[in-house]
Design a protein around this nucleic acid. Structure first.
Lengths: 235, 235
DNA sequence: GCCGATCTATTGTGATCACATTCTGCGCCG
DNA sequence: CGGCGCAGAATGTGATCACAATAGATCGGC
């Protein structure tokens, strides 16, 4: 009665430790939108699901809680946080600030192969939108942004950005289901052109526009809609 | 759905759990500069020091590691990360981006009492600089910034900013010891004036200047000095 | 029939133990 | 004198157990 199956396969480098495996699988599940906001996560439930003892699960859960992907209540119960209007605004603002910075840092270090990969991902994002394939869109959209930022090779910026994505991903899945894929805009082409011209200002603008138009374009009515129909939104 | 009515002590500092106590004490020690970069942290060492079992210590250590306050090596050993030139640049840039944003969000919500508290802290910072009292300066400087940002009441921005502070604090202590307190500038008065006039642009500028002049003003020679004399700086 | 108390089951917490891996110090051989 | 190898210590990891607190369910009283 807790959670269902998830995570097809993880061919990561070395998930030798149990807590690392638990952490990665849960993280991937959250980013993919398999965790519904408001759902409570139990220690023994995850433990049995992944066939480990409660000990490594607690470590993984606390780690995710410290990245604000999960939330611990006064009851010590853990759950997937719900979304709030102001929280969402903060997340968008933080995304715009950090990701435009990360893109700026990454731009001069983008090699030809990386640029080609970005073009390919952009095409796959477009294809996913055209096919109205939400999970595929989410995956490719995430991959596009993170391959761009990862080129900057910043051990400081990347964890911060990942934390933000972990916070809005569970909500995003539901928001898209409600407003439909038609609302999805694609500023990636604009970003690619900016990279080709090595235009920092244009790249920052493209990233900020992608953030604000892709996420921050929910109208008041749509917020009410989300708050009313299910418990994804708090209060 | 009717249980949030009475929570007399959940908002207060409740280190009831052992791992929370360990986490807070280690965090405070790191922010105060009691942890030397490069020093390795052992599980049983901390456990014996705080008189708890290794279990809650592991959780606290992993939590701090996920906030990048500590670093886990391939050997599974935990240590205080050393500083790098590029890492430091990233931290400064991220600080400027996030803290100016947090200040902007906080400004309209600063009440008279909060402003008065900020003025008092500014005075105490000046006094600490005049007295060349480094620990006191670090504490008051941190308190000034965090009371300002905390006024914005953003559960999103605060953890991100805290993570950044956890990363440069161990290094800061040593850098100040090397370059001396004379290098410490104080843009806090400028920030206070901006708040009084409710001037967003000026406030952002003051915060960014405080970050760049307070931390980012290390010269090339001073970096070599730090790298040479001890192992605070990596490679 | 509804509200409240009690009882039970579930959950989180943390200490202890056993095991695998790694580091360290010492002696040995070249 | 220096590198190599082995033994002992130290460290991280994770499963199990016992305990406390909480939530859910069941039963009794009004």
């Amino acid at each position: 009665m807790t959670d269902e199956a998830m995570v097809p396969e993880s061919t990561a480098a070395t998930p030798v430790t149990a807590h690392e495996r638990v952490y990665r699988e849960l993280k991937e599940a959250i980013l993919t939108g398999h965790f519904v906001p408001g759902r409570s996560v139990t220690l023994r439930g995850i433990a049995k699901m992944l066939d480990v003892s409660p000990t490594p699960v607690r470590e993984a859960l606390r780690r995710l809680a410290s990245e604000r992907a999960l939330e611990v209540h006064g009851n010590r119960r853990v759950s997937v946080p719900r979304m709030t209007r102001t929280k969402f605004d903060d997340l968008c603002a933080a995304r715009a600030a950090l990701e435009s910075l990360a893109a700026e840092r990454a731009m001069p270090r983008i090699e030809a192969a990386c640029l080609e990969r970005l073009r390919q991902l952009d095409a796959e994002v477009d294809a996913a939108i055209a096919a109205a394939d939400v999970p595929r869109y989410l995956r490719k959209h995430r991959e596009f942004h993170f391959t761009l930022y990862r080129a900057g090779d910043s051990g400081v910026l990347m964890p911060l950005i990942e934390s933000i994505w972990l916070q809005f991903s569970p909500f995003l899945r539901w928001a898209i289901h409600h407003v439909g894929v038609d609302y999805l805009v694609d500023r990636h082409a604009e970003a690619l052109h900016a990279i080709e011209r090595q235009d920092v200002t244009a790249l920052r603008f493209a990233i900020e526009a992608d953030v604000r138009e892709g996420l921050g374009s929910l109208t008041e009515a749509e917020w009410r809609d989300l708050a009313g129909e299910d418990a994804v939104v708090a209060r």
